[in-house]
């Protein structure tokens, strides 16, 4: 067991972990940041998406030893001043959420997209969330919510 200081959502978390443990398991089981979900644990479904130094990554296939000295952002870190992020608001109000299990991963992929490209086209939105499987919505309302969050016209 090694000791890790992890920078997550602007805070420093101290934890013991085996070097080969996934960032996702450490977030969920050790730090109790359970917003990031485990849908497959093999990098296929996108439910565990977090940002690492601003880029979306799959935390289930990233070892905790790989994120030393780097900035991790999870869905819990998005609200500012106690207010939900506009992506979280639009996803809620426009029917982008059904079972909700893919939701944190989708929101993080979308957040990363909007940081890079504040006014994405529909195709760019669909491409950005192509690694996030959603089984409930057929993606339409997610795309609408992200267009609304970006302030771009909704089809």
């Amino acid at each position: 067991m090694e000791h890790y200081s992890l920078k997550i959502n602007g805070h420093v978390y101290e934890t013991g972990a085996e070097p080969f443990e996934s960032l996702l398991d450490v977030l969920r089981e050790k730090l109790r940041l359970t917003g990031s979900k485990k849908g497959c644990d093999e990098g296929e479904c996108g439910s565990c998406t977090v940002l690492l130094d601003g880029k979306p990554v799959l935390s289930c296939i990233l070892m905790v030893s790989d994120v030393r000295d780097r900035e991790v952002l999870t869905v819990e870190g998005l609200p500012q001043g106690g207010e939900p992020h506009p992506i979280q608001v639009e996803m809620t109000e426009r029917g982008g959420i059904q079972c909700g299990y893919c939701t944190p991963g989708i929101i993080m992929s979308a957040y990363a997209l909007l940081q890079e490209n504040p006014r994405p086209s529909e195709d760019e939105i669909r491409f950005a969330i192509a690694g996030n499987i959603c089984r409930c919505t057929g993606y339409s309302k997610i795309v609408e919510a992200l267009q609304a969050a970006a302030g771009t016209p909704i089809r």
């Binding site: 093999e42 491409f127 499987i133 089984r135 057929g138 339409s140």
Partner: peptide, 17 residues
């Protein structure tokens, strides 16, 4: 027995509905 083999539609596969 893995989502690498069991293929579920993604946002690129589902059309406008």
């Amino acid at each position: 027995d893995s989502l690498a083999f069991y293929l579920v539609p993604t946002s690129m596969d589902v059309p406008e509905i």
